[in-house]
Amino acid sequence: MIIIFAIDALEYEKVEKFNCENLKQMHYGRTDISEFSQPRTMVLWSSFMTGMNKEKEVLKDGDKEMWDKKWDIKETFFSEFKNPVVLDLPGYSYDKKVHDKSRELLKKFFETEDKKEKDKIRKQYNKDAFEHHRKIKEQFLKAIEEKKEKHELVLGYFSVADVIGHLNFGNTTIMKMIYKELDEIAEQISKKGKLIILSDHGMKALGMFGDHSEYGSWSTNFDTKLKKPKITDFYKLITELKN
């Protein structure tokens, strides 16, 4: 089984700082996303699953409409695998309702000038993100535990570090808790198959807030010649793992 632990905004520097040993498997490093004009989540995951730079194609629909984009399985490497499970991945199986609600709260947070109201919105925003995380985690672990021959590939996309990070990156206590949680998931799945941990981009602090950084990160529990791969390089790597 091939397991892809897809983590939005996992920051390489924080993995090192918080000493997340399981997020650093046998090989790990940064990815090169310099070919993209900005580190946009939808563009990066679309390029990852299709193996091609999809920036123009994703952006032509507009900044808001891009979140509606859904790639056909035939355009992705998922089609190479028997019964693939792909959970919540932007551009493929994204739970738009949940993420729309999160963006609505983000909008409200910036619209209000009232500090108490801001705190209230932020708490709700964080709560929703953790609840969604728990739901995806449960489905991800369940799919991995199912009979080995059932799914050749299981991918779980986790948005908690990105969503919470945007409003809380300067809060070390919250961010450390999230990284430790992600590290524990990596520990649980690291012996269940060939594991790839991948982030689209990282995150850098902007006061108490978080902004996307200009590189992503990767890690594998198997031998590979990757050094500073592009996000599109994983298409070939993953399809070759099947053989």
Binding site: R40, T41, K64, L206
Partner: peptide, 17 residues
Amino acid sequence: KDEEKVKQRLRSLGYLD
């Protein structure tokens, strides 16, 4: 100041209208 900066950035990343 940070809030204004992050708001602009989130708009360009497609998170805010």
